[in-house]
Design a protein around this nucleic acid. Structure first.
Length: 287
DNA sequence: AGACCAGAATTTGGAGCATG
DNA sequence: CATGCTCCAAATTCTGGTCT
């Protein structure tokens, strides 16, 4: 599943982009961009794929997507194709990490904000009261003067960081970038998995990559990532299957084999486990 | 396309060993 | 004593065949 790099250029008098997407304009494909994206779903529902996370979204949801994190929002047809006035609506703010970094993040009072920006690489979904407050602030964003718009954006980021009222969506290993602190062995095995998940990939093979026995590897992987290796692999494969279902006309059997599964029954079971829908239902829903 | 089932494979948790 | 690993048995999950 290859994400497409999208170029975003803000209007000349501003340092970031705010837009209101309505109906057809909300359509998008699997893509990424160096800008952070703050998205408020004013009126719509569907499924979002953010990194290796797949899940439903509804009106009122707010999400912060970090730099270069691939994502795609699949809106239900009713919100895309309805008559004027009844279509779905979303408000999007796209800004470079420099904006909070150069204005606030360097200050000691803003330690939580720095943390928030680093967590955004996994995709952050706002919860409860914070989501409601941010939604209200985002409603106003498109109408504000450029200066007020910037201040409101910073205020929103500060509010999110301080509240801690959010959940992380993707695993931290989906879009990892090498750093000296990262576990080298884990990086090796995850990179190997990303490269080979479409084919046959045994636990033994994965363990071999980092010279561990299978037993030790299973325990190690679970301890490091919080999920089993098989679960991680399943999420990766089903995420790819979703893309194939939405973006191609391949049949379920073909997609099953293309995602590294050998039996249709198992593929369907796993698909249901991860998405809550059967492949055919999923395809009908979004095609 | 999807359900069901038996056998195979994987994961888990406890116990224990080696090393620093 | 802490850490990192292995071994083993039991539990859980996956696979592949078959049927609807």
């Amino acid at each position: 599943m290859k994400a497409v790099l999208k170029k975003v250029s803000p209007p000349p008098e501003t340092s970031f982009t705010v837009r209101k997407d309505v109906g057809e304009n909300m359509r998008n494909s699997w893509h990424y961009h160096p800008e952070l994206e703050l998205l408020y779903i004013k009126k719509s529902a569907g499924t979002w794929l953010i990194g290796d996370y797949i899940g439903p979204f509804h009106s009122g949801d707010v999400v912060l997507i970090g730099a270069n994190l691939p994502h795609s929002f699949r809106h239900e047809d009713t919100f895309i194709r309805t008559q004027k006035g009844q279509s779905g609506e979303a408000i999007v703010a796209l800004f470079k990490q420099d904006i909070p970094d150069s204005t606030l993040a360097a200050l000691p009072e803003m330690r939580k904000l720095t943390h928030l920006l680093s967590l955004s690489r996994q995709g952050i979904k706002l919860e409860g009261n914070t989501a409601r407050k941010v939604a209200v602030m985002m409603e106003d964003l498109p109408e504000l003067s450029p200066g007020n718009r910037l201040l409101t954006l910073l205020q929103i980021l500060y509010l999110i960081a301080e509240s801690g009222d959010y959940t992380l969506l993707s695993t931290q290993y989906f879009n990892y970038t090498p750093s000296h602190n990262d576990n080298h062995r884990l990086k090796t095995v995850i990179a190997y998995t990303h490269k080979h998940f479409r084919g046959k990939l045994s636990l033994e093979e994965a363990a071999e990559q980092i010279h561990m026995t299978v037993t030790s590897f299973c325990r190690y992987f679970k301890m490091e990532t919080g999920k089993t290796y098989v679960r991680f692999l399943t999420e990766l494969r089903i995420g790819y299957a979703c893309q194939l279902l939405m973006d191609t006309d391949k049949n379920i059997t073909e997609i099953c084999y293309e995602c590294g599964y050998n039996t249709l029954s198992h593929f369907i079971n796993m698909f249901k486990l991860i998405t809550g829908k059967r492949p055919v239902e999923y395809k009908k829903h979004f095609k």
